[in-house]
Amino acid sequence: MDVLNLLEKIEDIVEDASKFPLSNKVMIDKEEVLEVINEIRLKLPDEINRASWVAKERQRILTEAQSEAEELIEKVKEQQKMYIEESEIAKQAKLYAKQIVEEAEQKANDMKLGAYSYSDDILSKLQDKIKDINNIIEDNRDMLKKM
């Protein structure tokens, strides 16, 4: 910074100045010090403006970074929510599929039991018919024997 160099120059002027005997007071060249102070005054607004710009730019960058970070956090939250929902949908689909399979197996068992029952009923009726026919045959044979 130019201003710091100019302040060091004033410091050097004071350090190199002639001292009054038996005191800490020094004699300096008024014109030389005033000239350096005037240069500081001229440079100071530029330095202040640059510092102010740097501070504003820093704040803008920080605000922009904060905004981007918040957007990124929101995107991540939305993705996380979507993955959770997809996971829930998958769980529900698996549960629904399991229920369908169980219902299908139950219906298959019911149909199988129904078929067995129907077959048994048919066979029972057939057996009764065969018994009736057998009885008729025996009766007919008995009649033939008696003749």
Rank of each mutant, 00 (worst) to 15 (best):
D2E: 10
D2F: 02
V3C: 06
L6G: 01
L7W: 03
L7Y: 02
E8M: 09
D12H: 07
I13S: 01
V14F: 11
E15G: 01
E15N: 08
D16L: 11
D16N: 15
S18F: 02
P21G: 03
P21M: 00
S23H: 10
V26H: 03
I28T: 15
K30S: 15
E31C: 00
N38V: 00
N38L: 01
E39L: 02
E39M: 04
I40K: 01
L42V: 11
K43G: 02
P45L: 08
D46A: 04
E47P: 00
I48V: 13
N49A: 10
N49K: 15
R50E: 14
S52V: 02
W53Y: 12
V54Y: 03
V54L: 07
V54M: 03
V54A: 05
A55S: 12
K56Y: 06
R58G: 04
I61V: 14
T63G: 14
Q66Y: 12
S67W: 06
E68N: 12
E70A: 04
E70D: 12
E71Y: 11
L72F: 05
K75C: 05
K75T: 07
V76I: 15
V76K: 14
V76Y: 12
E78P: 03
Q80S: 15
K81S: 14
M82E: 15
M82T: 14
M82G: 02
Y83D: 09
I84N: 07
E85M: 07
E85W: 02
S87C: 07
S87T: 08
A90H: 08
A90W: 02
K91I: 05
K91L: 11
A93G: 05
A93H: 13
A93L: 14
K94M: 06
L95S: 10
L95E: 14
Y96A: 08
Y96V: 03
Y96F: 06
I100F: 03
I100E: 02
V101S: 09
A104T: 10
K107S: 05
A108H: 04
D110I: 02
D110R: 05
K112W: 07
A115F: 13
S117K: 15
D121M: 09
I122Y: 05
I122W: 06
L123Y: 09
K125E: 14
K125W: 04
Q127T: 07
D128C: 06
D128Q: 15
K129S: 15
K129C: 08
K129P: 03
I130V: 14
I130K: 09
N134W: 01
N135Q: 10
E138T: 08
D139G: 05
D142R: 11
D142Y: 10
M143V: 12
L144T: 12
L144H: 11
K145Y: 08
K145W: 06
K146D: 13
